[in-house]
């Protein structure tokens, strides 16, 4: 499947989506409410078959928090990038995709650990690297109180 039909195909799934052709991949911006349904459609659909979750990246955009999903199809060898963001810095929450791809489990825990992004209906959402009293270090407003100077 070529790039153009992929974008068109995703458009046909939901016409409200904001789809743009990036330098490398087709990039789709999804509102958080539609994320899970779109992800499962992309996973199940025979035309796209994104069966391999490459990467989940949590990003702090300054005022927004966002999550970027890189999906890959082992059959068609194409990639799509899903983006979603929320303005709620206190309780940022997205739907977990760990029921669609098992690989998401650890990636989402990592995003929660480092950015404080919660994933609804994640089976085991605990801190991964840091203990629970730690802040969220990958946020831009994170202040490290124990910097050791030489």
């Amino acid at each position: 499947m070529d790039k153009i039909p992929l974008a068109e195909f995703i458009k046909s799934l939901d016409s409200d989506l904001e789809i743009k052709e990036g330098k490398q991949f087709t990039e789709v911006t999804v509102p958080p409410s539609k994320l899970h349904s779109l992800a499962s459609q992309l996973r199940e659909n025979d035309e796209t078959l994104f069966d391999f979750l490459d990467c989940i990246t949590g990003v702090d955009y300054g005022h927004d928090l966002g999550v970027i999903y890189h999906l890959y199809s082992t059959k068609f060898r194409h990639t799509v990038v899903l983006r979603t963001r929320t303005a709620d810095r206190e309780h940022p929450q997205f739907d977990s995709v760990s029921d669609i791809w098992e690989a998401a489990n650890l990636h989402e825990r990592e995003a929660f650990d480092l950015l404080g992004i919660k994933f609804a209906s994640h089976p085991d959402l605990r801190r991964l690297f840091l203990n629970s009293s730690w802040g969220f270090p990958l946020r831009k407003d994170y202040v490290d109180n124990d910097i050791i100077t030489w």
Partner: peptide
Amino acid sequence: KFRTPNFANLSV
């Protein structure tokens, strides 16, 4: 962001 292979492999 580094999508490191071992991190993903650990989940299994």
